[in-house]
């Protein structure tokens, strides 16, 4: 029993080791993809109000009252598609933000453990909500309140990133000032 347990753990560790040592894919290598930041379609959270409107039942109730049952079901289907597309794009936004956050952390001379844990927690929270919403959609619900929460998580992350970038900038500026100082001992001021 113990042999099985420890052998299993060793196999698990070896699998994790192989995965960790695998060369990162071209897209996820340490360098920034600056063009990705300029893509106009990346801020999908901005469409939340439209999606909220698309997911509301008022229009469907109106069509139902008027007797357009076919149109109502078609509209319902189309709108569900739109909301699901929005959800997927929101996830893309989030992944883009976390990728940038990781790249900034990797370049930063100092990384806050608490901040990184917070980011990991936020990522976990986001994914849990994302899958919960998708599951709810699968069962025919339109959980618009959860969708708003999900957008809020993306927003929270962006605020957190802005703070870390500010700190990062201050440190970089300080390093640049120190490097360019004539009293830094690099003979820069000696004629």
């Amino acid at each position: 029993m113990t042999l099985m347990l420890f052998s299993g753990l060793a196999v698990l560790l070896l699998t994790a080791l192989i995965w960790a040592l695998r060369a990162p894919s071209r897209s996820s290598r340490g360098n920034f993809d600056l063009n990705a930041l300029e893509q106009p379609n990346r801020r999908h959270a901005t469409y939340l109000s439209l999606v909220r409107h698309a997911a509301s039942s008022d229009d469907l109730a109106f069509l139902s009252k008027r007797g357009y049952a076919k149109l109502q079901s078609r509209l319902h289907r189309e709108r569900r598609k739109v909301v699901l597309l929005y959800l997927d794009q929101l996830r893309c936004d989030f992944e883009q933000l976390t990728r940038t956050a990781r790249a900034i952390a990797a370049l930063s001379p100092s990384v806050g453990v608490r901040q990184e844990f917070q980011r990991a927690q936020l990522s976990f929270e986001f994914l849990a909500r994302y899958y919960a919403i998708r599951l709810a959609f699968g069962w025919g619900f339109v959980p618009i309140a959860q969708l708003s929460q999900l957008s809020q998580v993306v927003s929270q992350l962006s605020i957190q990133m802005e703070t870390s970038m500010k700190e990062f900038g201050e440190r970089a500026a300080m390093a640049a000032r120190t490097a360019s100082s004539p009293l830094d001992g690099n003979d820069a001021g000696v004629v």
Binding site: L48, I159, M161, F168
Partner: peptide, 16 residues
């Protein structure tokens, strides 16, 4: 990187 990311994030935050 910073100005580009900052601008994108600020826009996202403002809308939200």
């Amino acid at each position: 990187v910073s100005p580009q990311v900052n601008a994108s994030l600020r826009e996202m935050n403002d809308t939200l």
